[in-house]
Lab assay of single mutants.
Amino acid sequence: MPGGGPEMDDYMETLKDEEDALWENVECNRHMLSRYINPAKLTPYLRQCKVIDEQDEDEVLNAPMLPSKINRAGRLLDILHTKGQRGYVVFLESLEFYYPELYKLVTGKEPTRRFSTIVVEEGHEGLTHFLMNEVIKLQQQMKAKDLQRCELLARLRQLEDEKKQMTLTRVELLTFQERYYKMKEERDSYNDELVKVKDDNYNLAMRYAQLSEEKNMAVMRSRDLQLEIDQLKHRLNKMEEECKLERNQSLKLKNDIENRPKKEQVLELERENEMLKTKNQELQSIIQAGKRSLPDSDKAILDILEHDRKEALEDRQELVNRIYNLQEEARQAEELRDKYLEEKEDLELKCSTLGKDCEMYKHRMNTVMLQLEEVERERDQAFHSRDEAQTQYSQCLIEKDKYRKQIRELEEKNDEMRIEMVRREACIVNLESKLRRLSKDSNNLDQSLPRNLPVTIISQDFGDASPRTNGQEADDSSTSEESPEDSKYFLPYHPPQRRMNLKGIQLQRAKS
């Protein structure tokens, strides 16, 4: 015994090295194993092979420090690593049964499904019991997946119906949107047309105001020219009257000059006056001389005659003075006559000038009245044309509004008919989907599995289990394997941990 101590140590070291070499393959693929292994699927088989106990299973599945599946799978690998070579062998058998691809990844061999460990530990009855539990578990999982698949199909059909409904609603909204954009385009076109009409109206108003201003300026210029013409006519008439007055005065002077006595007659009258003065002096001298030589009687007679002569001279002087006064009065009367005649001529000139001015103003008033009548006639014609244009424009607008209203009513009726057609199509689609759903539900009910399987069917299934373990590994792997896509769409199922009653199965096998 003492001599065998070193050999035992060498043997233990060799086993430990082999164990480390075995687990080295697992550690190399630890990331892939932790990512894809579900500990809840492996722990029943590991407990059946007595590699882990209930406490280890509870620690792996329910520990609060292991929230994710990767953490739980890593903890399970750590626990199996502590179990040595047996933990490695049982772990590979569980991978061979549940995850053939991972088994091939770790060992590089094809899975054979021999279950040597569980046969050694529990015997064939334990293997049968384990396989029966796994089959029931798989059936329950398949039923749950079928239910989930039916629910998802129903949800899918519902979503398809909602999608069709949303599509129809979208078509309806597109119809309304198209109608909205069309009405918006019509409104924009009408606004552009309105702005264009306003611009045209403004341009016409500006043109009309400009023409009116030009016409008023032309009328004012015409009036100024007419006033200048009238003033020139007035000056012409005044000059004609002055010329006529000057002509009359010149004719009067000419007549006075023609009626003036001649120079010879004046000289002859002056000679006669001198001769008479000479004779008068001679007679006076004779009379003076006679007075001195005459007697007293003759002197008395001469005195009487002288007195008579003096009286006659006085009378004559009075007559001469009277004649002079009369001549002066006649001259003054002639001057007054000439003055009055001049005033008369001036008044006649003024009267004729005023008459011509009156005629001029009368003509001017007639011209202004004619212009006013023409302006009123043009204004009435413009008003009439404007009223006709406004009436025609309003009539066109009324007809346009009428046609637009008819078009809008027809478009609304068309839209309502399209919407009604879309709604009826939606109703038809809904009815078809309901009919299809009812038909599929009836087919699913016919094809669904019963909840409680008979014992004979279970025994028959387990009677055929042994050949399947040898020759149909691919079928078992397809039913027991969970793909990543299934984990996305289906909830994980945790079967209840219970042991099955095998009395009925044993009785059935005894009868057979």
Results as ranks from 00 to 15, higher is better:
N38G: 02
D53S: 04
M142C: 14
Y11W: 13
E122V: 04
L80S: 02
R86V: 12
D10H: 10
I70L: 05
D10S: 11
A73M: 06
H129K: 04
L33Q: 00
Q140S: 14
T14R: 12
T43C: 03
A21W: 10
K83Q: 07
R47M: 01
A73R: 01
Q139C: 15
Y45M: 08
M132T: 07
E57L: 03
L131T: 07
P100A: 02
M142Y: 09
Y36K: 07
K41V: 06
I118H: 14
M8R: 13
A40W: 09
P67M: 14
H129V: 12
V120M: 06
E13Q: 10
Q85I: 05
D78C: 05
L102S: 04
D9Y: 14
Y99D: 00
E19T: 12
N29D: 04
V120L: 05
I136R: 12
S94M: 03
C49Q: 15
Q141S: 09
I70S: 04
L22P: 05
K41T: 07
P67E: 00
Y88T: 08
G4M: 13
A144C: 09
R30F: 00
M132I: 07
E27A: 05
M32N: 08
H124G: 15
K145F: 09
L22E: 10
H31L: 10
N38D: 04
I70D: 00
T82E: 06
R86H: 12
R75A: 04
K143V: 11
A21F: 10
E27K: 02
H129G: 09
Q141L: 14
T117S: 15
K143M: 12
G108M: 05
L95M: 15
D58A: 00
P67K: 10
N71Q: 15
R35I: 05
Q139F: 08
R86M: 14
C28V: 10
M142T: 13
G123R: 15
E134G: 14
V60N: 00
Y36N: 07
M12C: 08
L131M: 04
T43V: 00
E54K: 05
H124N: 14
R47E: 02
V89S: 14
V60H: 03
L33G: 00
H31G: 05
M12N: 10
L77Q: 04
Y36Q: 10
L46N: 03
E19W: 12
I52T: 01
L15T: 10
R35P: 01
S68Y: 07
E134P: 15
F97Q: 06
K41D: 00
T128C: 04
E125R: 08
T107C: 04
L131A: 10
D56T: 02
E134Q: 07
L66M: 05
D20S: 11
M8W: 13
D20A: 11
I79L: 06
I52Q: 05
E110F: 08
H81C: 05
V106Q: 14
N71I: 08
V89I: 10
E110T: 07
R114L: 08
Y36L: 09
M32W: 04
L42H: 01
L66H: 01
S34F: 00
G84S: 08
G108N: 12
N25G: 09
D56F: 03
A73Q: 01
L138Q: 14
G74C: 04
P111Q: 04
D78F: 04
E24Y: 15
C28K: 03
I136M: 07
Q140V: 10
N62A: 07
Q139L: 14
S68T: 13
M12Q: 11
M65A: 08
D10N: 12
V60G: 00
Y45H: 06
E19N: 12
K109P: 05
Q140Y: 10
L127V: 11
V89E: 14
S34A: 10
M32I: 06
Q140F: 10
S34V: 13
S68G: 00
E24F: 12
D9C: 10
R75S: 02
M8E: 13
Y88A: 06
N38K: 01
Q140A: 12
D146G: 12
D56N: 05
G4N: 10
L22Q: 12
D146E: 13
K145N: 09
E93V: 06
E93A: 14
P44W: 00
T43R: 02
L138W: 06
Q139K: 13
G5Y: 14
R72C: 00
T43S: 04
L42M: 07
Q140R: 14
E18S: 11
A144Y: 11
E54Y: 07
T82D: 06
E121T: 11
L77M: 10
E93T: 09
V119F: 15
L61I: 05
D58T: 00
R30C: 03
L131E: 05
S116K: 11
D146R: 09
H81T: 05
L33P: 01
K143G: 08
V106M: 10
R35W: 06
A40G: 07
E13F: 11
K137F: 15
G5E: 12
P44A: 05
V26E: 08
T82L: 09
M65N: 06
E110G: 06
N62K: 00
L80K: 01
R72F: 00
V106R: 00
D9L: 09
K41H: 02
E54R: 05
E13L: 12
L46A: 01
L61A: 00
M132P: 04
S116G: 14
A63V: 00
E122N: 09
G84R: 04
H129F: 11
E54C: 06
D58R: 01
L76K: 02
N133L: 08
E134A: 14
W23T: 07
K50A: 10
F115S: 14
L102I: 03
L80H: 04
E24L: 08
D10R: 13
Y11H: 14
R47L: 02
M132H: 00
G108P: 00
N25A: 12
E121H: 15
E18Q: 10
T43E: 01
Q85N: 14
L95R: 02
D78S: 03
L33C: 05
I37T: 01
T117G: 14
G84F: 04
S94T: 12
L102Q: 05
I79R: 03
A144W: 07
I70W: 04
E110C: 09
L22A: 09
A63C: 14
R47V: 01
K16T: 10
K50S: 10
R86K: 12
D20M: 10
P6K: 12
E57R: 01
E57C: 06
T14N: 15
A144G: 11
F115Q: 15
T43P: 03
L66R: 00
M32C: 09
T112G: 15
Y88I: 05
D9K: 10
E122K: 08
H31C: 13
K145Y: 10
H31T: 09
M8F: 08
G126C: 14
E122C: 04
F91Y: 04
H124A: 15
A63M: 02
D56M: 00
Y11S: 11
L61D: 05
I37G: 01
R72N: 01
